[in-house]
Design a binder for these strands. Structure first.
Lengths: 224, 224
DNA sequence: CTGATTGTATGACAAATATCATATTTTATT
DNA sequence: AATAAAATATGATATTTGTCATACAATCAG
């Protein structure tokens, strides 16, 4: 059983407030999983009863709309935690988490985390701040969805993917998403997304080559 | 100076976890304000450094989009708290709060609240749960914005106004909003909002009479 | 009361987006 | 490698929504 005190998740998440002793306790009760690309970590409506630490890989957090479309709310990368809101609200998760790449995650049961909560003030403050950050992000995101055109949202999404996940040696976006998934982030029909990507390509804003997307004209993309 | 222990806000918010002693402390450091209809309680970007308790009246929480439109994210009624996220994140508020009716609010400084935080576990848990509730709401709202038509969003907004704020004796919606504000909630142009309200009126889904809106066909509105 | 201002309503039109159809390309499977 | 299946691309078209113009109604200040 691997230790928690050297883990990347500890370094970048609320868990950084935990001391050696607490980390040891956590290491003893955690469960590690390998999640293959395309597989779910959890599904909307499920009772999760704990949190997941993302050690490696990226997953999407999404929700089915009433018309059956998948809306992607957020991508979660290694170093982050999953399921905090649901744990605190003591409710089923309201989002699904599905791996976009092969992933390594650890599950820590709720009882354990809630223990730290009561004993370690800095830890609970960190969790709060992280959730507050999510809330602010969600509000900003909401305004964009309500007030911006699909074209603008697509441009922003591409820039976001660039900034968050970086690029390969050939400068193409590192994170691999299907057109359908990009459409799910932007909140539009897959065909519209494809069409706009083609348009961006023709206008020199981006370069398409197979599944690879390379951002070219950052200025124009930003000022859209 | 009025006491806090009988206050409606105490009854319905996170504050219900505070004991007599804490409420007394709070009563001694709070400031009461009367806010007239149309006036702001705080504005996007401001440093608030505390929370507001809404004793009476309703306000809108909104944010300006980059194109200058006002998007309303939430209406806050008496009994609720304002500014929790900003206090915990230790950041300026990201939303503006403007009174939709004459309001009575109390301001409690951050230092006081953070004191309760460390001493009263149930209180901090309540605040967390309240913020988690906001986050869930924001996610749901986001999916609606991204995936539903303006017509659907308007119908939902009307039903929400009905369910949250109730009706007058003549069955019209109690909460009074301009067409522009309704459009700001729905995330559409004012003219589109007016047009759709007219359409709903013609089709018997609602009844318009001056500024008054009366919901008529709940079934159709819900199944839109 | 009266003119001025603001809010509401509606028409005409343009632009953005969704939908359906179909072709092409890529990927997976045998 | 051959075939099937899935993903991507694009055209045609309908629908939705935004924008601009203008009319009408309500509200407010003097």
């Amino acid at each position: 059983m691997s230790k928690c005190d050297q883990c990347i998740v500890r370094e970048f998440s609320s868990l950084k407030a935990l001391n050696k002793e607490e980390l040891l306790k956590m290491a003893n009760c955690k469960t590690s999983y390998i999640i293959k690309k395309g597989e779910p970590i959890f599904t909307e409506g499920e009772n999760v009863n704990g949190i997941f630490c993302v050690k490696d890989g990226v997953c999407k957090l999404s929700k089915l709309s009433e018309n059956g479309n998948e809306q992607i709310l957020k991508l979660v990368a290694k170093g982050e935690l999953l399921g905090q809101r649901s744990m605190i609200s003591d409710e089923p998760v309201n989002l699904s988490a599905v791996a976009l790449e092969d992933m390594e995650v650890c599950f820590v049961p709720k009882s354990e985390i809630l223990g730290f909560f009561n004993e370690n003030n800095q830890f609970s403050m960190n969790v709060m701040k992280s959730i507050c950050g999510d809330l602010k992000e969600a509000d900003d995101h909401l305004v964009n969805m309500a007030q911006k055109s699909v074209r603008q949202r697509l441009a922003e999404t591409l820039l976001e993917l660039h900034d968050t996940f970086g690029i390969n040696e050939d400068k193409s976006l590192r994170i691999k998403l299907s057109r359908e998934e990009i459409a799910g982030m932007v909140g539009t029909a897959t065909e519209s997304c494809i069409r706009l990507l083609s348009e961006f390509n023709k206008n020199g804003l981006i370069e398409l080559s197979g599944k690879k997307i390379t951002l070219k004209d950052f200025k124009k993309l930003r000022s859209m």
